[in-house]
Amino acid sequence: MLNYFYNSNIFTWIEKLTNFINSIFFALLIAGLSFALVFSPPDYLQGDSVRIMYVHVPAAWISLASFSCIALLSIFNFIFKIKHLTLITKSIAPIGLMFTCIAIVTGSIWGRPTWGTFWAWDARISSMLILALFYLAFIFIHKLVSDEDRANKISSIVAAFGLINIPIIKYSVEWWSTLHQPASIKITGSSSIHSSMLMPLLLMFFVLIMYCALIFLMKYKTEIIRIKKKNLKRL
């Protein structure tokens, strides 16, 4: 099964997928942006500033999802020693870091008109900052530790440890009193966000997921070429 991710046809698959995403991406982006900025209604309380949600929330979701992904693959890699998983985790990490930063910055911009401050050291925002630090640690271990096996080992442990932070971020708004509001969209039960605003949110989420896929495929390709180049030298 795992060979499926790393067989000689992988480049054909990457190319096909990239072409497919490229063909639909701009249509999706324009649809997403026009719904987010023009067609969606303003909020009854926050007015038009609620539109920041359409970039802030998807970015936060992606940053949490990609760290969970990295952590689980790292644990898997640590136990079963499957080399190719490292290529995947290394390709995801910069995307996750970027979206964590986007979530923090857009959240900060959103905080100014709604809360009245750019920054508050509440549990949600602080734990997001810690997530960014975990991403940084993961990336820098791979950059600084020259022995690849060692780098994999250390970064796997860091990622596994960072996994504890994910439920803390998720539930920080319920466990402690925070300035950040509780989650509007719940995994179980009804969400407290009107469908005319939920639809653009999900559309923007989908657009950004497609963007992530594009970046991931490029990064993954780069990593494979790097490995192949090393093998070439051994010849």
Binding site: L37, R51, I52, V55, H56, V105, T106, I109
Partner: peptide, 10 residues
């Protein structure tokens, strides 16, 4: 200014 700056930043 807030909405556009966050969209443009992203």
């Amino acid at each position: 200014i807030f909405v556009w700056s966050s969209f443009i930043f992203t």
